[in-house]
Amino acid sequence: MSKNEMAFRLAVLASLLVGMVLRIIPLHRELFVYNPDWVLLFLIYWALAIPERVGLGYAWCMGLLVDALTGRTLGQHALAYSVIVFISVKLHSRLRSYPLYQQGILIFMLLLVNQLLVFLTQNGKSAGTIGMVYWLPSLVGALVWPVVFLTLRRVRRCFPIA
């Protein structure tokens, strides 16, 4: 593995770490309801940009870490992330050619599927207290997608290898 490659991998891992930090950032309770799943957004970007490097392995491991981070049953996010990243890798060449807003729509779908999978694998009684607001983080995630995309693309272009 060349030095560049190494640095690049570190950058990917660092971005995922930033995603984890954003995931549990101490916002006010009212605002936190809208906090999108940053880790998944970043994973999707890397799966689209460098599908030959970031794939299911990353998704599953990050899923486990997020499960531990958010106090879920182990495997909930691992399952959801694997499915979403699998779809992203499958569609990467098509998705990359879309304009940003169109990507946003698809990202919205992917995030919704992710939330649905996490919701379905949950066994709490809290389902009764969940309203439409529960699904809003997906919408927020789609809205911030252009920012994520442009920022991470800039990061990626700092490294000559990819």
Binding site: G55, L56, A59, W60, G63, L64, T73, L74, G75, Q76, A78, L79, S82, V83, F86, V89, K90, T121
Partner: peptide
């Protein structure tokens, strides 16, 4: 092998979920 990889991941996740029960 991508589809196979997904299968492995999904099964592993489900196994974890079951174990956690």
């Amino acid at each position: 092998s991508a589809g196979f990889g997904l299968l492995v991941c999904v099964l592993a996740s489900l196994a974890l979920l079951a174990c956690e029960q």
